[in-house]
Structure formats: structure tokens, C-alpha cells
């Protein structure tokens, strides 16, 4: 038998087996997370400082990703942009999944009219195209960062609800839940101690996918000029700012796009290559 690699052994000690694609995707994600955390310390130039005499400058030794439409350093702006893209998306996905999963489990366990009303209402919200929803709400409440987080989490709560409810309904019919019910346990205990541990794996995988959707929607909104507003810029806003450089094939357009792609593709690949023990725990 082949000797497992260092990471493979590490994974086995944890009880999980990762493959190479999953590991490299995880590596890229950790890299971006580190960059988002330490961005202000590692950027070579200040984000507002004009460092190049030329606009849409090429890649050079000093300016790794070239310069933008004002001659600012794109490398530093992409590193700082990671904070907005990752931070806003992470906050939104946490709120969306927390409320969606909590509501979904409550609906599944409580049943009755609460379940019907909640499902009907959230399903209706789910049948508004997300980009359109974002467009209308952002037009209404504006695009400050808290408003963006709130909008994005409202848009993705119904999906998380539907997913969690479907899983919880299955668990809810199992014998140990019936036993707990007969024992006289209340709704909070049933949800937290009986249902949640049994749906956690798939819910976390779903959280990852939803994170990708949110990153894409946030970038799309920023690209339309309705997302993160100057002087701050996430990756979508960076593409929008520099779209004028597209006819010259400027690196200022290409690198922020690549940053988005590297993040979203990594999350998708990581989830696709998760050990099935984590992903399909409920299917065991």
C-alpha cells in the first residue's frame, strides 16, 4: 500500500480522508482568509495612493498586478478588497444559514399551521430571482455595508430554510426523536440536541454553497454599481471601476476577476471533494 502523504496522515488522524484537489482548494481558502485578516499590514502601497504615472499600467516588478484607472496599485486594492468580499459574504451567509436552519428545524418539529404558513411565505420569497430581489431592495434601502449584509441574508434565508426543513423532517420521524418527545422534552431541546447534530454535516456543506451564491451576487451588485460604494471597494467594484481598461486588456480588470474565480471555484471544489462522512452524514 502507498505511504500516505503528510496531509493524508494528518487527515487520517482526524478520522477523515481528504484528496489532493480538496486539500489545495482548502489551502487557497485559508490563504484568502489570512489575507483578509492581515491585509492592512501586508499591502505594499496604500490603497488610495497614486503610485503610477500611467493609468491601466502593465504588470511590473513594483506593481505586481499593474495599476488601475487612476494609477493606484491593483495588488494592494485586491488584497484589501478581500476584506469586503469575504467579510460581507461571511456575515451574510452566517445570518442567512443561522436563521434559515433555526426556522427550518422549528417548522419541521412544530408542524401544523406554523409549518404551512412559514413554508408558503418563504417559498414565495424564494421564487423571486435573487439578482432582481437584490436590485429592488438595494434601490430601496441603499447600499451601506450593514444594509448589504441584511439584504443578502434575507435573500438567502428561504433557501437555507427549505434545505434544513427537508433534512429535519426526515430526522423528525426517527425513533429517538419520538422517544425524546414521549419523555416530554420541549421544542428547544428537540431542536438543539436531537435534530441539529444529525443534520449538521449537510447543513455545513449547504452553507459553503450558499457562500458561493452570496459572493457571486455581491460581486454582481457591486459590478452594477449597487454594491459596495467608494471609497471602499470589493472585488466586483474593482472590476467595475476598471472596466474602461477592458478594450486594452488591462491587468486591472483581469486580476480582481481572477480573485473572485479563485475563491468561488475553491469553495465548490472543496465541497465536491469533502469526505463523504462529513457531507452526507444524514445518509449513513
Amino acid at each position: 500500500m502507498k505511504q500516505p502523504s503528510l496531509f493524508g496522515r494528518l487527515g487520517m488522524r482526524l478520522g477523515y480522508r481528504f484528496n489532493l484537489i480538496g486539500l489545495s482548494a482548502l489551502g487557497i481558502l485559508l490563504l484568502w482568509a489570512g489575507i483578509a485578516l492581515f491585509a492592512p499590514r501586508i499591502i505594499p502601497h496604500s490603497v488610495g495612493e497614486i503610485v503610477d504615472t500611467d493609468y491601466f499600467g502593465p504588470v511590473s516588478r513594483d506593481l505586481w498586478f499593474g495599476s488601475d484607472y487612476l494609477g493606484r496599485d491593483i495588488f494592494s486594492r485586491v488584497l484589501m478588497g478581500a476584506r469586503y468580499t469575504l467579510g460581507i459574504s461571511l456575515a451574510a451567509v452566517s445570518i442567512a444559514c443561522f436563521s434559515g436552519v433555526a426556522l427550518g428545524m422549528t417548522a419541521a418539529v412544530a408542524g401544523g399551521w406554523l409549518d404551512t404558513v412559514l413554508s408558503r411565505f418563504l417559498d414565495a420569497l424564494n421564487s423571486i430571482p435573487s439578482k432582481l430581489f437584490g436590485l429592488v431592495v438595494v434601490a430601496a434601502v441603499g447600499s451601506s455595508i450593514p444594509a448589504l449584509i441584511a439584504t443578502l441574508s434575507v435573500i438567502y434565508t428561504p433557501g437555507a430554510y427549505r434545505f434544513a426543513r427537508a433534512l429535519a423532517v426526515n430526522v423528525n420521524t426517527m425513533d429517538f426523536v419520538v422517544v425524546a418527545r414521549i419523555r416530554g422534552e420541549g421544542l428547544p431541546y428537540l431542536i438543539a440536541s436531537e435534530i441539529l447534530p444529525n443534520i449538521l454535516g449537510p447543513v455545513l456543506a449547504d452553507l459553503g454553497l450558499r457562500f458561493v451564491f452570496i459572493v457571486l451576487l455581491l460581486s454582481g451588485l457591486s459590478f452594477l454599481g449597487l454594491g459596495v460604494q467608494p471609497p471602499y471597494a470589493d472585488w466586483g467594484a474593482l472590476v467595475r471601476e476598471n472596466i474602461g481598461g477592458l478594450p486594452f486588456g488591462a491587468p486591472a480588470v483581469i486580476f480582481p476577476s481572477l480573485a473572485i474565480a479563485s475563491l468561488t471555484i475553491s469553495v465548490n471544489l472543496l465541497i465536491d471533494n469533502l469526505p463523504s462522512r462529513i457531507r452526507d452524514r444524514s445518509a449513513e
Partner: peptide
């Protein structure tokens, strides 16, 4: 997977 992971505006710009 690559295509569904990137935003539409990126496909358009490419």
C-alpha cells in the same frame, strides 16, 4: 463547475 462558480460579468468580460 468552473463556469457556474464565476459571476456572469466575468464570462462576459472574458
Amino acid at each position: 463547475i468552473g463556469i457556474i462558480s464565476v459571476p456572469e460579468f466575468m464570462i462576459a468580460t472574458l
